Computed example of a mutant assay.
Amino acid sequence: MRFAYLGSGSRGNGAVISSGSTHVLLDCGFPAGEAQRRLQRLGLEASQLAAILVTHEHGDHIGGVSALARRHRLAVFMTLGTRAAGKMHADVDVQVIDGHSPFAVDDLEIHPYPVPHDARQPCQYVFHDGQMRLGVLSDAGCITPHIRSMLAPCDGLAVEFNHDRDMLARGPYPQSLKTRVGGQLGHLSNCQSAGLLAEIGMARLQHLVLAHLSEQNNSQALARQAAATALDVDEDWVQIADQDQGLDWRQLAPR
């Protein structure tokens, strides 16, 4: 199994997870044409995708889903709440999922799990190819016991490191937005995500990717330092999904 990012941040999110000939797109917060260009950068065409999975209805995650799915006749998987709140064209094939029940897309077994975020029925996902597990966590305001249990057995992780608490407090956002971002239904801080990593540890981890970094309230240096310290690894080992450049393929392989 391998994975890559089209881009990650408040201006658009999207990741690709692949096993064999199965490729799924996780979120698409970019216009369809831009998403296609970013997929090509990874050596893929949108027509090769087996499906699009959606985490929640916020525009930086769902903005390009309907157009891309309609253009390439792709099935879209999302919770009922996301379906109700999201804007999908009538002829898009929407498959409603239970946020607690696994399902399969060709060679991938996919385990959704609910997260605390200010959306209708948000979920994140763990991907399993029969041997390796990749866990993705973003757009959550706090770490729950269920989140820990879902991510602990993963061989690869992509985890939100949205903001540095001090930078958020001193930053340009109005107080209402600062309260939202830092709240229980907002986004994970460097400190929160580092605490999760310290609990999980390095026993299984092959790759760690930091995602959804705020351009106003965080820096790659601060996020990478927090993650590396939590896992007691070199900072160079920690990867970051960039807003504009995304992240090239990372491979998970049995040891």
Results as ranks from 00 to 15, higher is better:
Met1Asn: 07
Phe3Cys: 05
Ala4Pro: 05
Ser8Ala: 06
Ser21Gln: 12
His23Arg: 15
Leu26Ala: 08
Leu26Pro: 13
Asp27Glu: 12
Gly29Pro: 11
Glu34Tyr: 05
Gln36Arg: 08
Arg37Trp: 15
Glu45Ile: 07
Val54Asn: 02
His58Asn: 12
Val65Gln: 05
Ala69Trp: 01
Arg70Gly: 08
His72Leu: 10
His72Tyr: 13
Arg73Gly: 12
Val76Lys: 07
Met78Gly: 13
Gly81Met: 09
Asp91Thr: 15
Gln95Met: 13
Phe103Lys: 00
Ala104Asn: 13
Ala119Gly: 08
Cys123Asn: 13
Val126Cys: 01
Gly130Cys: 06
Gln131Lys: 04
Arg133Met: 03
Leu134Met: 05
Gly135Ser: 07
Ser138Met: 13
Gly141His: 03
His146Ala: 12
Ile147Gln: 01
Met150Gln: 10
Cys154His: 00
Val159Leu: 05
Asp164Asn: 11
Asp166Ala: 15
Met167Phe: 12
Gly171Pro: 04
Pro174Gly: 03
Ser176Gly: 08
Val181His: 06
Gly182Ala: 10
Gly183Tyr: 08
Ala194Glu: 02
Leu196Arg: 00
Ala198His: 14
Ala203Thr: 01
Leu213Gln: 15
Ser214Met: 12
Glu215Met: 11
Ser219Ile: 05
Ala221Val: 15
Ala221Arg: 15
Ala226Phe: 05
Leu231Arg: 06
Leu231Gly: 04
Glu235Gln: 12
Asp236Thr: 15
Val238Met: 09
Gln239Met: 10
Ala241Thr: 01
Gln243His: 09
Asp244Trp: 06
Gly246Ala: 03
Asp248Gly: 09
Leu252Ala: 00
Ala253Tyr: 14
Ala253Ser: 11
